[in-house]
Design a protein around this nucleic acid. Structure first.
Lengths: 160, 160
DNA sequence: AGCTAATAGTTTAATATAGAATAGCTTAAA
DNA sequence: TTTAAGCTATTCTATATTAAACTATTAGCT
């Protein structure tokens, strides 16, 4: 098996924390995705609908920054949402480079119906640790998330 | 924008912690993936090489459980690793359903060269919080990760 | 022995994803 | 005004990802 890692106490701690962090994120994401399945929406589709729902219409570039996805990816996912009749694209007349994506009536109805259930799932996942611990976790993750990167906002961020 | 969320203090805390947790995980994963880029390996390819390197040859089913990916996915990624000459497939003679995946000489050399650098990146990401905090984070994430799920091991897990 | 269950892996279809190349549009500079 | 530079979105390529259908193989039961 070759060279196993022999680091300082601090390095080992860092590594273990990393592993548990990733496991928690993967694990929760997996369960939430499963909860989303009956809706026939993928995670990214949901994120986009949710962002438009809470922050209003915006162009694809901004949308990509919000949901942390590449512009090419946004094009595809918005394509699919458009095919499903959940969003609409309107090219700006003042600056024809921009395309504003907005929810259709159907899209609005869909997300407004799904969102509360999704919130419930999230709270359900997290509430096994108490308020102090939630605050602690939030603060530690905030530090780690910002490390060498102050750009790109996050999804649900401004909505509450 | 319609109904914003109005929940209890506890629910709000849960939600905020969730958002920060996901942001941290995404953010770190993104930076690590970028660090991996010069090697021309994807995250999943790296995970598979790393698992084989530290835990030894194993069949695809087990491999999938370790890296938390579907069996169809494993087939594809192992295909690509095989094309690159990094892993080898051998069908078991005792039970011809099983295929044992192992590292080639080239695969062993590759992962043993990359792995220390990758470890360094991880430690570098995490070490901005101190030992106590790392321990706290680890414990909280352990609880969240296990919530309603005791299966599937994790990658680096058994290696140190 | 022969039928049935289960199990490992592959294939397929649909979606996701990043990144690079490209096309169209706008603005600023020459 | 024409050109250059920069920006937005799309396209293309390659890989990832899951779920479901399918194949091959084995194990268990009668």
């Amino acid at each position: 098996m070759g060279t196993h890692y022999r680091g300082s106490r601090h390095e080992i701690n860092a590594l273990n924390a990393y592993i548990k962090l990733m496991r928690a994120a993967n694990s929760i994401t997996g369960r939430l995705a499963k909860g989303l399945k009956p809706t026939n929406l993928t995670m990214t589709q949901f994120s986009i609908l949710e962002t438009l729902y809470h922050l209003g219409p915006m162009n694809q570039r901004t949308l990509g920054a919000k949901v942390l996805k590449s512009s090419g990816n946004i094009t595809l996912v918005v394509d699919n949402l458009e095919k499903s009749g959940l969003v609409r694209r309107v090219r700006s007349r003042s600056d024809r480079r921009f395309i504003t994506v907005s929810l259709t009536k159907k899209g609005k109805e869909t997300i407004s119906e799904i969102f509360p259930d999704y919130l419930f799932l999230i709270v359900n996942e997290m509430e096994i640790i108490d308020d102090n611990e939630l605050k602690t976790l939030e603060n530690l993750c905030k530090i780690l998330g910002l490390h060498k990167r102050e750009d790109d906002k996050l999804i649900l961020e401004k909505s509450y």
